[in-house]
Amino acid sequence: MFKKAAIATAIGAVSLATASQALADDYIVDIEGQHAFIQFKINHLGYSYILGTFEEFEGRFHYDADDLEASSVEMEVQVNSLNSNHAERDRHFLSDDFLSAGTYPTATFVSTGFEPTGDDEGVLTGDLTLKGETREIEMPVTLMGEGEDPWGNYRAGFEGSTNLTLADFGIDMSDFPEVMHELELYVTFEGVRQ
């Protein structure tokens, strides 16, 4: 009985060790402490901007300073969590006039490539799926920093932004002025190394 338990513990310890080795450069986006933001900024009639954020999402990424080409990111966003600080506008954004969040409740980004362009900088390529349409997008990203945090974990944090043409994702903006046909997507997050 005792022996069996000891063997089981040993096997468990070995498999844990291999698992953590394999995951050495894998990070989970810090949702627990919410050091992660996905925001958009879209012009309003040429007079100002509407800013909004997605409150619910999760993601993971692979990042190794010595092997940058192997970098990858995956994000999954709950579209219904959109918040632009105005209930009726949010409902309108989520309606069939724009995002059809009832039919397409999630948006995803899956990277397909990464090209370093300088110190702590690069261009991330990937498939963005929004409102059921998948388009390849490019997003210039910056490594803002990495290192130990005060609570015993290792973190790496990034930011990036890109412009999206809404028509590419089946969002008809033809009734609105030209300046409103695009929006800026801004993403920043920290990941906790696993």
Binding site: N83, N85, H86, A87, E88, D90, R91
Partner: peptide, 8 residues
């Protein structure tokens, strides 16, 4: 509840 969904 539509109008007050965001606390306004």
């Amino acid at each position: 509840l539509i109008s007050t969904a965001r606390g306004r």
